[in-house]
Design a protein around this nucleic acid. Structure first.
Lengths: 220, 220
DNA sequence: AGCTACATGTAATCTGTTACATGATTTC
DNA sequence: GAAATCATGTAACAGATTACATGTAGCT
């Protein structure tokens, strides 16, 4: 549903991209907020052209396969602006790893910690790549034309959020690992039942700070 | 792909839920990380039962339609644990509103600000609902059995992240609104071209702090 | 009289992913 | 000699969404 707008949005600023170029952009520059496949891009481009929202031109190349480059039409720009002005919906969230974490009491504390460490690494890699891509693009833009534009503002703002998302997940993994380590004994069922740790202020005294704060926040 | 694990995970802790019950849980308790539809839940439950991962029982009700309640089998628990121990993948992010924002230079500054205000409201509503749900569940758990369990730890940790996500988006909307307001003139094309604002330290002196910091962070 | 909650499903459609197909050039 | 890059697509399958179907009880 949103893919077509991503394509139109990208073409609105960088005309003359091919389907293959677009895929590379989704994998790098647009990676903080969207991903897709070539097998979805090509039919979508054909569909957009049928509706006269984009227009294509075949470029013959030597030593490389021919390519079709696309330009957005005026009708396409209107269509994009209509979307940008339509009422934004509440996000439809699917965070597979948070779902996993929600049920991590089903495995051992060590396994849970291991999972969080692995996921933290994935997010660290994403953060590194994002920084690299942003730096590269800002440098390119500076070299071409050093003027600050609305375009650069919005890109920077979205990247700020993208980078913060990665940092946020990395921090959360670390905090959650500490939490599990602190309460590791709870995972050993044998040691429970006798003396239960209660969900009250005294028992939470030396628990990680954020955990205590959350319990407090919820109880006003 | 992950839906079945969400169902198994939920049934692993709250046995005796119907498809209808599960939908309510996805809409409330599991809302911070997943969403789905009844028309996806019912076939999935039948599929899980065919594979002996869950087992159902029809409960006849008076004044209400009959319902089928589900219990996870031992095979189902193994299947869930296998998933929980499998290697977590890098997230496949689709944030429609960030994509929108990335292209908001295509509409006026006022329209962009309006969009961000609307989206901020959506996130504020989500935050309120999440807090309400968490408070309610923690209260229920306390009343039943005040013991701190791995289950409660993981739920709390995931909710901490869910709440932070909402707060993070709300803050980002506010910051981005301020940024657009600060650079509003850039959106009026006529006033540009004459004297371009450069992407350097002097021109960024009175720009929002986070914006300057990001530019610095990227340049090491 | 109309709406919401309860409860389970199917059908049609749309979106997304993996696999397949082709073929030249460049890099390891 | 194998793998990656460039380049465009189709086909099959999996997952997600909207619409349709049915019917009672209770609330406004």
């Amino acid at each position: 549903m949103s893919l077509k707008y991503g394509i139109l949005g990208f073409l609105s600023e960088w005309p003359g991209a091919s389907g293959y170029d677009l895929k590379k952009e989704f994998d790098t520059f647009m990676n903080p907020f969207w991903h897709t496949h070539l097998s979805q891009i090509y039919p979508e481009l054909n569909h957009l052209e049928e509706k006269d929202l984009v227009h294509s031109e075949v470029i013959e190349q030597t030593a490389k396969p021919d390519k079709k480059i696309y330009t957005i039409t005026e009708k396409g720009r209107d269509y994009l602006r209509d979307w940008l002005s339509s009422s934004p919906q509440s996000p439809k969230i699917k965070e597979a790893f948070l779902m996993r974490s929600f049920f991590l009491d089903n495995v051992t504390a060590d396994e849970a910690i291991f999972q969080l460490q692995l996921y933290k690494k994935r997010r660290e890699d994403r953060l590194k790549n994002m920084k690299r891509t942003l730096k590269q693009r800002l440098t390119e833009m500076k070299n071409e034309n050093a003027a600050l534009t609305p375009r650069i503002l919005m890109i920077t703002s979205v990247y700020k959020k993208g980078l913060d998302e990665e940092k946020g997940f990395i921090r959360w993994c670390e905090e959650t690992i500490k939490l599990i380590q602190h309460y590791k004994d709870l995972w050993k069922k044998e040691e429970r039942e006798e003396e239960d740790i209660l969900l009250n202020h005294e028992s939470l005294k030396d628990a990680p700070k954020w955990f205590v704060e959350l319990i407090d926040e919820i109880n006003e």
